[in-house]
């Protein structure tokens, strides 16, 4: 009994050390989304390409990726080539949400750097972004066939992130 008591501080120290050690290197800038497992929130916004065409959540039919982007966002430009490649070579549907941007600028941008998006929602006030819990473009969501959000990535879609997304998509396909 006494021996255990003597060892107690050491045990507490080891426990704390393991707990804190796990926190080191963890990415604290990514916060878990409460929208996972929930459908894409309803919205009524115009298409980026045609201001007379009204779009709603029904326009997003999964499985697909939803990419939140803007011309003012440097990381969006960085990941754009990767999105082009995914849409072209991997046959993945990507929907765009043009977040707090300028319509004319966005159109020029897509002409200049190619357009990987099947559809593009124009969200100048960021209302849809707010309902999606967007806090920093770019963000990429994975939706399943029912339009339910299954995965969220904040930041650039790198090759490694794409592999994760791809595995997640395959898992959804075989699972359902």
């Amino acid at each position: 009994m006494r021996r255990i008591l003597v060892l107690l501080p050491l045990l507490i120290f080891v426990g704390l050390a393991i707990f804190l050690w796990r926190g080191i290197g963890q990415d604290t800038t990514t916060i878990p989304s409460p929208l996972l497992g929930k459908p894409v929130p309803e919205f009524s916004l115009t298409s980026l390409y045609d201001e007379n065409q009204v779009m709603s959540a029904k326009d997003f039919s999964g499985p697909a990726l939803i990419n939140v982007w803007a011309t003012w966002c440097p990381t969006c430009k960085q990941e754009h080539a990767q999105l082009n490649r995914i849409a072209r070579d991997e046959g993945v549907t990507i929907y765009g949400i043009n977040y707090k941007d300028d319509r004319a600028k966005a159109k020029i941008w897509l002409e200049k750097y190619q357009d990987p998006y099947a559809k593009n929602v124009f969200d100048p006030q960021g209302r849809l972004g707010l309902n999606l819990g967007v806090y920093g473009a770019p963000e990429t969501y994975l939706i399943d066939a029912e339009g339910v959000i299954r995965y969220k990535h904040i930041g650039e879609v790198t090759e490694r992130v794409w592999q994760t997304l791809k595995a997640e998509m395959q898992r959804l396909e075989t699972g359902s």
Binding site: P34, L130, N131
Partner: peptide
């Protein structure tokens, strides 16, 4: 706020 950005 919580339903969009979590307990965080």
């Amino acid at each position: 706020m919580v339903t969009r950005y979590g307990e965080f």
